[in-house]
Design a protein around this nucleic acid. Sequence first.
DNA 1: CGCCAGGTTGATTTCGCTCAAGCAATGTGG
DNA 2: CCACATTGCTTGAGCGAAATCAACCTGGCG
Lengths: 238, 238
Amino acid sequence: MLDDGNCDNNACFPKKIIKETEWGALTSSEREDLFKLSVCRKYQVGEMIFHQADECRGLYLIREGLVSVRKQCLDGSEVIIRLARGGDTLGYRPFLADQPHLASAQVMQNSLICFFAASQIKKILLENPHFGFEFLQREARELGDAEERFQQTVSQSVRIRLIHLLLVLNQYYGMPIQKGSLDLELPISRQDMASMIGIRVESLSRTIKHLTDDGLLNFSGRHVRIHNLELMAEEISY
Amino acid sequence: MLDDGNCDNNACFPKKIIKETEWGALTSSEREDLFKLSVCRKYQVGEMIFHQADECRGLYLIREGLVSVRKQCLDGSEVIIRLARGGDTLGYRPFLADQPHLASAQVMQNSLICFFAASQIKKILLENPHFGFEFLQREARELGDAEERFQQTVSQSVRIRLIHLLLVLNQYYGMPIQKGSLDLELPISRQDMASMIGIRVESLSRTIKHLTDDGLLNFSGRHVRIHNLELMAEEISY
DNA sequence: CGCCAGGTTGATTTCGCTCAAGCAATGTGG
DNA sequence: CCACATTGCTTGAGCGAAATCAACCTGGCG
């Protein structure tokens, strides 16, 4: 699936990405300009794309793969801010705010990622208002998500938060098997799931057990079978 | 200080706001256009500016005063997302994301607030890239703040979160009295402080007591005296 | 004066964390 | 091939921080 080393620069904006992301707002000449200086390469699982506190040098467009964005404290604890997939762009927050990275990005699944220098992007941003507008919309939605998550984490139990997480992961990794029930192949470890909802891995394990005991689902490693989606979704009607 | 009813439209962009906020990116003719259709008026304490789930009709510029932005669950619990003061603009998140309001805005102190219709703003946004860019930067910083707060709330104790809150409020309401010590006139109730850091009001009360017992500060109603700012700030070095 | 909202305090419970052990799957070096 | 780490996950026991429930102040206001 992934080709080795640097990819053909022409391949850096597949149709799907042009169609579905902010990069579609570019003119073809702007796209060409970007191509010339872009660096696209394959990343292996575990590789870091950037580190918290690093200066932000530009944007990373994920063509394929999975990347986690995480913040860590000095005390060692860490929180996963979000997962990024094909089509997602990393680093625009620090780039736009003119701040260093406030989080680290680590590859979770082998990925193909294109880098665009900040200076290039800035140039386009000032020339093409549509591009900026797309970014505005994306940021606004993301800010909404962040506030939503804040509220949920503060006021909901671990059980509810886990169900929420599963429902979100279902959107990307779920495979319906019959009416109401579905299979889910988790892309991340227990540890990382715990970090996403701000709890310890032991608590996650126990909560999974409770959901299992209640007959809502079955875990087997990273494979989940959800027996009754609606029943589960009912719990989070807040 | 505040004049009654609608203000003179010319007064809707005081110099301070032009100088320090995204509205400074407008040309004077754009400013004039906005004036014509803006609605500026005085709000009393307790008034709602908009409600969660309302359609977003435009932006609210706070000229003076204090406004809380809060999200509530069905179960009655609520979280304060942020406090907005003179110079702050409300409603741009739902406006840009093209979503309904995901939070309510309530006046905490008598305020003077200008409303600009969404259509007007959209027009300017497409014509003036600088204006959009200012919004981009603001959103990016705010997203960073939201992620920071998420991490802190998830991984820090109530004590640390309260100290954080006091240090933030200090930036706006603190009055140094001598080296290291200062007075702080809180603009909000205990209930609202608790909502800002995601705890119950009883827990807040107890935590205040602990800080007092430790000799860090003294509360008397909404008046706080912080004896040793550095000592307090040391606790949050993470 | 009584009332009430805002705030504090106390008693109790609960949820999630910590620490510790165990287990299965996978890897590694002799 | 075995002995042995290592890693990811689960389980248990005990603890502690914050929530809950309830009572009680306190000051302002009709």
